Structures are given as C-alpha cells and as structure tokens.
Simulated assay, not measured.
Amino acid sequence: MEKKIKSIDDLMSIADLDPRHHTGEIIGSMTTSIHPRVFDVIAKFIEKNQNDHVLFPSLSVIEEELISETKRILGLSEDISGVITSGGTESNILALYAFKKTFSSRTVISLESAHQSISKAAALLELNIVKVKTNDDGYYNPDELQGILARYPNSVLVLTMGTTEIGRVDPITPIIDSIRKYHIHVHIDGAMGGFTYPFTNPKEFGKYVELVNEGLASFSTDYHKFPGAPIPSSVLFLNSMLEDKLKWNSHYMPAGYQKGLLGTRPGYSAAGALATLLLKGRDGLAYSAIRSYNLALETMNTLQSNWNLSIPRPDVPLLCVGLGEEELVSRAWSFLWSYGIKTYFCSKPPGLRIVFMPHIKKKHIDRFINKLLEFFEQGSREYHER
C-alpha cells in the first residue's frame, strides 16, 4: 500500500477529509464544536497524567474544582463523590463494578434501549443481565418492571437519561417504591441527557438527583457531549463507599493508588472540561439545552405535519425520524451523505437519527428537510403517498 502520510503537512491536510461541525454537516453525531479558548487550555496540560496528581498538583486542584462545579450546576450534594472518567462506557463499567464489589450484586436489570456498553460491562464483569422490553415510544411497562425488581432483590437497575436512538429518559416515578422495597441499586446513565434534562425538565430531573443524594444511585454524564468539552471527558458520581472500590493500589506512584480503568488519564480532558464549564456557565448551558430541545420539537412537528412520519417525542434534543423499511432508510442515508448531511441510524422505528447539538442551527435543519423532500420526490413517491 502506498504511504499517504509522508510529512507533518500531509498529516495536517488529511483532516480535510472529515466533515465539520460549524457548517452543519454533522447532524447525527453526539459531538460538537469546542470553544476556541479551550484549545489554549488543552495545550497547557497535554502532557500531564490526571492519575498522577502528586507529580502534577495542578490536576488535583482542577479535578476538585471540576467535580464541585458540576455538582453545583446539577444540584448534587457536596457529600457525593465524583470520579473523572473517559466517557459513558468507562463510567458504566465502573458503576456496575462498584455495586458488585460493595453489595455482591450479580444481576443487572437493563432496558433493551440502554446503551450497548451496559451489555459490554455485564460481559466483562460476568454479571447476569435481564433485559426489559420497551414499546415503540421507548417506555417500559411499569407492572412488568416491578415484577422483575421483585424477583431480583439487591440487583442493579440501569436507567438511561437520553437513550441513544430516540432520546428517551426512563421514568423513575412508577418504580421508586419498588426500588426502595427490594433494595435495588440504581445507575443512571446520563451521558447525553445529563447536561440537557436538568434545564428542559428540572422538576423531573430533581427526582433522580434526590435518589443520588440519598446514596441510592450513581449518576454519570459526559462533558464531551452536549457541553462541548474535548474528547474524552466524563464523570461518575456515587457515594464514598462505592468510590473506594474504584481505587487500585499503585505502590510505585507517589499517591500510592490510581482511580478508574485507565492508568494514564489525559490531564487536558479535565482541564478542558473545567474550562468549558467556566466559559459557558450554568446559564449558558441552560440556554443551549433549551434552544436545542425546542428546535428538536419544532423539527418533529414540521416533519410530522408534512409527511406524517413516525417520530417518538424525545426527552432530550434528539430525533429518530422513522422512515419505515430498512431499505428505504439505507437509501435515504446514502442520499443525504452524498450532499454532506451526516445523519446516523435508529432502529425503533427504523429511521435516521438527528442530534441537536449546540452547533446545529435552524438553517442546517432546513437543509436536511429540503434534501429529504428531494429524496422523496426523486424516488420514493410510493412511501410519500402512504
């Protein structure tokens, strides 16, 4: 194979192969633009290991401030511990590991709409996983789930705050009594919704916060998704008893231990995440979340009124635009990608996923809608007339 990258200039120019956020090309990914000033922060901490905070004391201060500021923004108690992670997958694995080691919980109850990393974590940790069915709108049957909780006391229940494909927040109110009655340990995967749902539905979000503050649940969310911090950066909140299980002896290091799955953890991630929160502030995050969610609902209403498409109403800024047959979905995806409109897939209903990240503007969505109309007019009249 011919070598394509022969110089630093070649390496830099190959980035031009990728679509860009600010042009609105990327509308299906849970990534977004980084604030320009954050790049200066990244450069300052690029060679420092977050897990070696004795050698790099600045990172200890940054970690403490980042966790404290996040708890303030989300309304979490100061008594809750936080662990910096690389993303939702690491957070989910660590949460299930902590529950297993602390309470000997060997069964994970997971909705079928949960992120695939839950199944991955269960496999790695050799946990029994019980999948709970959801309907076409992504909701579980409360009676069915309550029955499962009764059969598996002392198990771990995973709830998602913003499912990957349709943006559903798994309701907690119908099962809260069963959670307490059967000593269920709850992990809330808020990778996508952790920085949007608090602002678009603060009353409901408060119910999850209450469970976390009582020490009955862990909660994770990603800085590198909606806030727009550099990849990878995330956080897992849990009580101190659970956090202790996530420390591993490392006698050769000055601190004597490390936290999390990674031995070397990029210091720029935490620094970039804190910089992002400082630049945007709680008000800025709230504004972006509400604006993006309203744009998602407006888009849903437009698509449904024009074509009667199947689109589950989301709880976070994300739409699954149902198109019907998988073959039609595949052709629509290829058509849109050929015009630089990078959507993703969703399967229930079969369709195209749009994520309304902060860089997405109405003009970008209008272009998507116009091209989708063009696709229908060119070759899908049979579907369009249904």
Rank of each mutant, 00 (worst) to 15 (best):
P254D: 12
K247S: 13
E327F: 09
P312C: 07
L261A: 10
C320R: 02
L285F: 13
A273Y: 06
A271I: 05
A270G: 03
K247T: 11
G284F: 09
V329P: 01
D244V: 03
L262K: 02
A296Q: 08
R265D: 01
Y252L: 04
L277Q: 08
I311W: 03
L274S: 00
P317L: 09
G284R: 04
G322Y: 12
T299N: 01
C320T: 01
L261Q: 06
K247R: 15
H251M: 11
S250D: 15
P254H: 14
P266R: 10
L319H: 03
L277C: 12
E327Q: 10
G256D: 02
G263F: 10
K245S: 11
E325H: 13
A289F: 02
L262N: 03
A271P: 07
S250Y: 15
A273C: 05
R313E: 13
W248H: 09
L328Q: 07
L303F: 11
Y293E: 03
Q304Y: 10
A273S: 09
D244H: 14
A270Q: 07
E327H: 13
R265H: 08
G281Q: 06
G324C: 06
E243Q: 12
Y293A: 05
S250A: 13
L295V: 06
M253D: 04
N306Q: 14
G267S: 02
R291Q: 12
R265Y: 07
Y252S: 12
K280Y: 15
L303M: 09
E325V: 00
T299F: 05
E327M: 12
V321R: 03
M300E: 06
P266Y: 11
S292C: 08
V321W: 04
E325K: 15
Q258R: 12
Y293G: 02
S305D: 13
K280T: 13
M300G: 04
R265S: 10
Y252I: 01
D283H: 10
S269T: 00
A296C: 05
G324R: 02
P317H: 12
L318V: 05
T302R: 15
T302M: 14
L246I: 05
I290K: 11
R291G: 02
L261G: 13
I311H: 04
D283V: 02
L328I: 12
L319I: 03
E243W: 14
G281C: 08
S292D: 08
G322E: 12
A270S: 15
N306E: 12
S288D: 10
G267K: 06
L323R: 00
V329W: 01
Y293D: 05
Q304L: 14
G267V: 00
G324K: 07
G284N: 04
S330D: 07
A255N: 08
A286Y: 02
R282E: 15
K245H: 15
